[in-house]
């Protein structure tokens, strides 16, 4: 059945969930959530919930897929079968294969891989609940997990998706806005360095709209970056020694 397109921008100019166009969803981050991984993080953008774990640097077998002058990064973006409305087949889809690649490249820009020749750094991203923006939530979580694993990074990487819905550019789109919107543009950056490591556009924008969309993404990423830094530091502040 073809569903009727819902109204995405209300009469009062707010979005279907009451957010302003340039407003993020409520974001929650927690670092060091898995004991087995060298680093891990859980990140939620609204109802989107993603967990990331990092193993390594560790030796890579078989040897012939290692690199003599730097570490390789292996990255898997995967959606849990229960993360979507209808059960998702757990076998990797073409979409997941593509996203694993662009996420790997988005993180690889930040990692000092040259410090660990012949080794691998493994990044596993599991989408536990999907409600739009899963890849950018995944990148934000993976960057925290890499930092938590003590892997040297040029900067953290933070991501957010900008969309165009009912003709309006909006920050941090959710699933409804992705499904019925005119464009979805995921962006990830190393915010301190002002560098873009992931950029995709799924939809149509005029060159002027694109400029505006990228500015909006930068604004959102700065806010997310601030939260990432807090989440990382919180891990150490919480273990306050008891007063003696």
């Amino acid at each position: 059945m073809k569903k009727e397109k819902p109204k995405l921008i209300r009469e009062d100019g707010l979005r279907h969930d009451g957010r302003r166009p340039d407003e993020l969803r409520p974001i929650r981050m927690e670092v060091g959530v898995l004991s087995n991984a060298n680093g891990s993080a859980l990140v939620e953008y609204g109802k989107t919930k993603v967990i990331a774990a990092v193993y390594g640097p560790r030796e890579l077998h078989p040897r012939h897929i290692s690199l003599p002058d730097r570490a390789v990064i292996r990255c898997r973006y995967h959606m849990a079968p229960f993360s979507t409305e209808e059960r998702k087949n757990p076998a990797p889809s073409r979409r997941e294969i593509e996203l694993s690649k662009v996420i790997r490249e988005a993180l690889e820009a930040a990692v000092f891989t040259e410090l660990y020749p012949r080794a691998t750094i493994d990044v596993f991203i599991e989408v536990l609940q999907a409600d739009g923006g899963t890849r950018t939530t995944g990148i934000t979580a993976a960057a925290l997990a890499l930092a938590d694993a003590g892997i040297p990074l040029r900067d953290l990487v933070a991501g957010v998706a900008v969309g165009k819905v009912d003709g309006v550019l909006v920050l941090d789109i959710d699933q409804l806005e992705d499904e019925y919107g005119e464009a979805d543009m995921p962006v990830a950056m190393m915010p301190s360095l002002g560098k873009i490591t992931l950029l995709q556009l799924n939809g149509v924008l005029t060159p002027e709209e694109f400029r505006e969309a990228l500015k909006l993404a930068e604004k959102g990423i700065k806010e997310i970056y601030r939260m990432q830094r807090e989440a990382l530091k919180k891990k150490y502040v919480e273990i306050k020694p008891e007063e003696t």
């Binding site: 662009v102 950029l199 556009l201 149509v204 005029t206 060159p207």
Partner: peptide, 9 residues
């Protein structure tokens, strides 16, 4: 003259 898609690789 519109942008119909983008991909950083």
């Amino acid at each position: 003259g519109r942008i119909a898609g983008m991909q950083k690789m």
